[in-house]
């Protein structure tokens, strides 16, 4: 039960992008297409998962005074590994469009935040669940933003060079493909998400009140 709570915390209640607004740089910069968003999510999953596992494993032997430099070295190493693997095995266009955002994962607050506030204080199994929850939450948020940006901005959804035109291109609103469009779409998605979560909370509270009255 505790593990499910840890997972749902990252996925829904403390969603890094939609609730606590961490890692906004890739959330805005790599959401031009769904393909980019998916690969960025995989990057974050790889780094967050392994950094949580490693930091949780060595938490008892890391001297408190040097814990932050140690975390940074570990995270930077993992990011460099992802960068090299993506460079070698990902389509070059995708690697190029992700560009510096891969390297910027080193300073992504989600990764360092989870390392400092969770992995360094909890056992490995809980840290794995935490990493999966936060990665899933991040992935969900940026893929939803990318879906709307790509669909409204180009009228089509594309993957690996294949494109499916859903809205005639003359009706596409190019603004959504630009940086301004990223802010607007993210704002709308956050508003929609908050409204849904508030409605769920209100429904739950009403149910509990009804049960109390009975």
């Amino acid at each position: 039960m505790k593990k499910l709570k840890v997972f749902l915390n990252g996925l829904l209640y403390e969603n890094p992008t939609l609730v606590i607004f961490l890692g906004m740089c890739p959330a805005l910069g790599t959401t031009g297409t769904i393909e980019n968003a998916v690969y960025m999510s995989l990057c974050v999953l790889f780094v967050l998962f392994l950094s949580n596992v490693i930091i949780s494993s060595i938490r008892k032997i890391v001297p408190n005074e040097v814990r932050i430099p140690v975390y940074i070295i570990i995270i930077a190493t993992l990011v460099s590994i992802v960068d090299m693997l993506f460079h070698a095995y990902l389509p070059y266009d995708v690697y190029q469009s992700l560009g510096s955002f891969i390297s910027l994962i080193v300073v992504n607050c989600i990764i360092l935040g989870r390392a400092e506030s969770f992995a360094s204080k909890n056992k490995v199994s809980d840290s794995i669940i935490d990493a999966l929850g936060y990665s899933a939450g991040f992935a969900m948020a940026i893929i939803v933003v990318a879906f709307f940006r790509e669909l409204i901005g180009t009228g089509a959804l594309s993957w690996a060079g294949h494109s499916l035109q859903i809205i005639p291109s003359e009706y596409a609103i190019k603004l959504f493909s630009t940086n301004s469009g990223a802010f607007i779409t993210l704002g709308l998605v956050v508003a929609g998400y908050t409204a849904i979560m508030e409605a769920v909370k209100a429904k739950k509270a009403a149910k509990e009140k009804l049960a109390e009255n009975k």
């Binding site: 890391v62 001297p63 005074e65 040097v66 430099p69 140690v70 070295i73 570990i74 930077a76 190493t77 460099s80 590994i81 090299m84 693997l85 460079h87 070698a88 095995y89």
Partner: peptide, 28 residues
């Protein structure tokens, strides 16, 4: 103790990075 610990962590990370570079460099 502190610099030695940091040095060991740095060496281990460097080793892992070298290995990854060895695996991917030809393909890149």
């Amino acid at each position: 103790k502190l610099p030695i610990f940091l040095g060991v962590v740095g060496c281990l990370c460097g080793g892992v990075l070298s290995l990854t570079n060895f695996i991917t460099k030809d393909k890149i």
